[in-house]
């Protein structure tokens, strides 16, 4: 329960931070913090929870006020990526976060192009994809670290493990 609350709060924080700070400061070079948060959360929580988190986070991102695109685009992309990250997250969480950070902009642009958004030609997609991927990759470790720290702390505090870590180490 507490975990879900934490995830929700983290998502909310990422959403607000994204539109009110990052986008205004960095313009088109802003990393997609919402996506990174979703993927990092999914990587620590598993496939089913990852898909749910991705869908909810994407839907919230679609509805976040300055929005002028078709509802559901981000929900679809983030749902799929959340599932993927949840599947592969146990083995190499940081790697899967980085992979998602790279492929997500392309997916979003591709769906936009399929839906017929004006101005989305192949050269545009290529340049934007490359730039967004690089920006996301730069921001990925930091976001991953923050999400990981917060969610792990919560799990330990309210979780079902009765043995504390230092005792586990000695046993």
């Amino acid at each position: 329960m507490l975990r879900n609350l934490t995830a929700g709060l983290l998502l909310l924080l990422a959403l607000v931070l994204q539109v009110s700070l990052l986008n205004r400061l960095l313009g088109s070079f802003a990393p997609d913090v919402v996506l990174l948060t979703v993927v990092a959360l999914a990587a620590t929580r598993g496939p089913a929870a990852g898909a749910v988190i991705g869908f909810c986070g994407g839907l919230a991102y679609d509805m976040l006020p300055p929005a002028n695109h078709t509802l559901g685009q981000y929900a679809l992309v983030m749902c799929a990526l959340g599932y993927l990250a949840g599947r592969a997250g146990e083995r190499a969480p940081l790697v899967i976060v980085a992979v998602c950070a790279v492929i997500a902009p392309g997916l979003v642009e591709g769906i936009g192009a399929l839906l017929g958004s004006p101005g989305l030609t192949w050269p545009v997609i290529r340049t934007v994809w490359l730039r967004s991927a690089v920006c996301n990759l730069v921001a990925a470790p930091a976001v991953f670290w923050v999400v990981n720290a917060l969610s792990r702390q919560r799990r330990r505090g309210g979780g079902n493990e009765l043995v504390t870590s230092w005792r586990r180490g000695t046993a």
Partner: peptide, 16 residues
């Protein structure tokens, strides 16, 4: 006053 911005380049450009 502008309070938030969203710009997916080539995709959408809107402010709140």
């Amino acid at each position: 006053q502008v309070v938030a911005r969203r710009s997916v380049p080539g995709f959408e450009d809107a402010v709140e």
